[in-house]
Design a protein around this nucleic acid. Structure first.
Lengths: 228, 228
DNA sequence: GCAAAAGTGTTCCTTTTACACCCATGC
DNA sequence: GCATGGGTGTAAAAGGAACACTTTTGC
């Protein structure tokens, strides 16, 4: 068969999550300029260059298409159904990333005619099998924040405790007991209480915290188990 | 740059685990016939064809190189370091599979001059980055058996309870309390006790069990959480 | 002084762990 | 009848869930 001579194309796609206490959990999508799925929303991504690593490819595509740079990036899953791209065979390695949404202004570039944040509960129809990728990413995030302290990647370096709680409630999709949650988290010894206070205007001002990253890795090495 | 014209090669690799109560946890390796890493042991695997799915590619390579067919197959991770293959760029999607070791006789074929089971604690030096893949697979298996009942894929359809215990002890790498383990497992309601007994020759014969797969999925749907 | 939000501690219940004795078989 | 391994139950400890009252602020 002549198709045997064709080589498979390798691409990467990225689900980049951002969080804002007003708008909740969002992710970045770009609007496609070209067919297939012209004008449809899709995950940022593209073909991997011959000599670059997968992570480099993700970061490059994100920069080119949205202007974003992520600190936290993790491989999610590789999608390889033969018909997932109508043009030709494309296997895509999907990643998910976490950023502080406030830090970046999205801008559209290269393949995209637009780039925008969408709340995870109000996504438009997505191109290719990107809805499936998004579903997997959300599920992974939901599970992972319970056993790895990755939530901090979505919050400012300094944050009032209530924001950490609300972040967990949003991602886990359920109410949590404020007091038990705080007790559990503080017991871990990975949060530092800062001298400053935070006020929303009404109510008693709350303490501001910082994630002690180094302390976490030290404790982890000693066998401490993060579990929330 | 001219390298930009080259396309990345896509391959799959498989870590197939087998278990035997005498020899413990093993995996299949093949001995490479050709360079690079000629005569070294490696994971079964190879290039994905243009029109086949990733899972099909894995099963095909396994059949060709070892004669094995796996029931349980799950994607592990995708390895894409630019220099992982000295010849050219190869990105490999790694899978891990579980089989009833007793069911298959390994035979070497195609690229392999030999195919053999190796105990996971006594592996030879491996070609490419296959040691890293194996490490990841073992870790995944170790974690996964605690929250998915995949251990049964490694046991015979009918098994004495002690074998399930020993399997878990082997994979988790620690002693478990026989009584607590049994209590926990039976409470889940996914094991059926068969009328037959099993005897090793000495001691009281033990009951023989069967994994009620359907019951498990029904219960799972209703929110039951498997956790051992 | 009232509403709103943060800080703190106690009790209850469920789950996990530790552990000991009896029973069925082969030799 | 003794050695070997399987079957069962209970008590103590730990961890998680539920919950109420006090404090600080803005208006």
């Amino acid at each position: 068969m002549s198709a045997g001579k064709n080589k498979i194309n390798l691409s990467v796609d990225a689900v980049v999550f951002g969080y804002d206490k007003e708008t909740g959990l969002s992710l970045t999508l770009i609007k496609r300029k070209n067919p297939p799925f012209q004008h449809a929303w899709a995950l940022p991504g593209g073909l991997v260059k011959y000599a670059e690593s997968l992570e480099t490819a993700v970061q490059r595509e994100l920069r080119e298409e949205t202007g974003i740079q992520v600190n936290y990036l993790e491989q999610l899953y590789t999608y390889g159904a033969p018909d997932r791209d109508p043009r030709n065979r494309v296997v895509s390695v999907a990643y998910y990333g976490l950023i502080r949404q406030s830090q970046y202004q999205l801008y559209a570039a290269s393949d995209a005619s637009d780039a925008q944040w969408f709340n995870v509960d109000q996504l438009p129809n997505l191109a290719f099998d990107h809805q499936q990728i998004v579903d997997t990413a959300i599920l992974r995030l939901k599970n992972k924040i319970t056993y790895e302290p990755i939530g901090f990647e979505l919050l400012d370096q300094k944050f009032p405790f209530i924001q950490l709680l609300t972040l967990y409630e949003t991602i886990r999709g359920k109410k949590l007991d404020r007091r038990n949650f705080k007790k559990k988290f503080l017991q871990l010894g990975i949060l530092e209480e800062l001298p400053e206070k935070h006020s929303e205007g009404k109510g008693r001002p709350g303490a501001v915290y910082r994630f002690k990253k180094k302390a976490y890795f030290d404790l982890k090495e000693k066998g401490m188990i993060f579990e929330v």
